[in-house]
């Protein structure tokens, strides 16, 4: 170390120490910041919220959206609540979103963390309702509860009742509440009003509620409709064993019941 004066050496040492301490602090905060990205499945962001990763770079945690929410739906996350501290969220089972037409929470946001481009609340995608427990849902047992369907602000669009035959009674129909992801805003009124002790229908974040096709995947019949004809040759029709000698109109494909 003959090349370094004592002063220079002291300076470098203290700079290295300080730098290391700050780097450690940075690492700790970084881990916390990273953990804060994991939004709990029951925490729903306000309408118009940017995707979670962008949201955390945009929301300054001022709470103006919370203040302007007329139904006290929104609240700010406390340190131990789960969502990043100070960010707005709601829990549908506690207080759902009433889907105000003027969307005051979005109007209040000074930063654009709630996208001002959202002008029609019906276009909001806060999450997606999923009828998650078919074993306990009353309608799935053949009863006419229908409450989630009745309270849906977009009744017959976001939730429809699909009929099917009730094989248990042989005389009745099942009315199956069916959520349509292109219409559902994730407001959570269905989850709030589910009559079970624990809701059978729940609003989930879109990434949990939705599957996603591989980018290469094509639905053959849609491609056919688009192109006006099948994109591939007809499937080679192999002879169906056991039907030889039958007239062709009687040949049912596959297994005969």
């Amino acid at each position: 170390m003959s090349g370094l004066s004592a002063n220079r050496r002291r300076f470098l040492e203290s700079a290295a120490k300080g730098g290391a301490a700050i780097a450690c602090a940075g690492l700790a905060i970084g881990l916390l910041a990273d953990r804060s990205r994991a939004l709990p499945a029951t925490a729903i962001r306000p309408p118009g919220a940017l995707p979670e990763d962008d949201f955390l770079g945009a929301c300054v945690r001022c709470g103006l959206c919370v203040r302007d929410c007329p139904y006290d739906t929104l609240k700010l996350a406390d340190l131990a609540d789960g969502p990043a501290a100070g960010t707005p969220f709601f829990e549908a089972r506690a207080v759902p979103c009433e889907m105000c037409e003027d969307i005051p929470c979005v109007a209040a946001c000074p930063t654009g963390a709630l996208d001002p481009g959202l002008t029609e609340i019906e276009k909001a995608k806060m999450g997606l309702a999923v009828l998650i427990d078919q074993e306990n849902c009353l309608n799935f047992q053949g009863l006419r509860c229908d409450v989630c369907y009745r309270v849906c602000p977009l009744i017959d669009k976001a939730i429809t009742l699909e009929l099917s035959h009730n094989q248990r009674t042989e005389a009745h129909a099942f009315f199956i509440p069916t959520v349509h992801s292109d219409e559902c805003t994730g407001c959570g009124k269905c989850e709030k009003s589910c009559v079970l002790e624990e809701a059978a229908i729940k609003v989930l974040p879109l990434h949990l509620a939705k599957g996603e096709l591989g980018a290469h995947y094509r639905w053959g019949w849609k491609e056919k409709e688009k192109a006006g004809e099948a994109l591939i040759d007809d499937i080679i029709d192999l002879p169906d064993r056991g039907y030889q000698g039958m007239p062709s109109e009687q040949r049912l494909k596959g297994f005969k019941p």
Binding site: I22, A23, A25, G26, I29, G30, L32, A33, D34, S36, R37, D53, D54, L56, G57, A58, C59, V60, R61, A84, A85, G86
Partner: peptide, 16 residues
């Protein structure tokens, strides 16, 4: 650290 952390994580870093 606060500004660098924000740039690296894409979050408002110090608010954590």
């Amino acid at each position: 650290l606060v500004l660098l952390g924000s740039a690296v994580t894409g979050t408002i870093f110090w608010e954590v």
